[in-house]
Nucleic acid binder design. Structure first.
Lengths: 107, 107
DNA sequence: TGAATATATGAAATATTTATCATATATAAA
DNA sequence: TTTATATATGATAAATATTTCATATATTCA
């Protein structure tokens, strides 16, 4: 059974969703623009945007047949702080060894 | 292939590891004390502590046959900010619907 | 030295998350 | 009112993370 913290991380700590939030830090964007910038599948992006909307991490407004997404202020601050932490700890994260850094090249 | 942000979230956004960090906000604790407070398996706790150590989220010192763990300051601040955000957004997170809140009761 | 306590390690089993697929809806323009 | 564009939905397949299991190491005390 999940508590609020689990749900928060499910929403926020997801690679694709966090990338969306990172993009939206600077300016609001519509789904199509996000898709181009992030090079993700349309259907995935749509799922992720809905999740971020549900959780109130972003808001949306309609403009013609586009939907323009904007990050909310509190969430932006948290994203900035995480990005900063990651920068400072990058070297340790990369050699953790418990976390799997990447699939190695050999088949 | 994982980047530093992915690794950060793998380490930080894990239920058990984040609970450890939450416990360590107030005071340093040894593994046995964490085990009692969190009611987790010894072997799991040990894996998680190693991960947090590798990532420099916590430090450790020996005392007799115990090992005393302490959270580092920057990490503590981030944990506090996340805890605060979760409190403010709890109501929305719980009705997201994309995030699976819990296994429903029926078998 | 041998037993007891505290903690760590690595591999495999299990569970959960994320991506894909097929398709639906909503708006605009011809 | 049909077609094209932009975006959304839900079910399953595929990938990844977490737990468990069997066992190891390190320190203290008798």
């Amino acid at each position: 059974m999940k508590n609020a913290t689990d749900l928060f991380f499910d929403a926020f700590a997801n690679r694709n969703r966090f990338n969306i939030l990172m993009q939206l830090r600077d300016k609001e964007l519509c789904a199509g623009e996000l898709q181009q910038k992030l090079k993700v599948e349309q259907t995935n992006l749509s799922h992720d945007l809905k999740c971020l909307l549900n959780c109130k991490f972003i808001t949306v407004r309609k403009e013609g047949r586009k939907r323009i997404y904007r990050i909310n202020n509190e969430t932006k601050e948290l994203v900035d702080e995480v990005a900063n932490h990651v920068k400072n700890y990058e070297v340790y994260l990369k050699k953790c060894g418990i976390l799997r850094e990447e699939k190695n090249g050999r088949v």
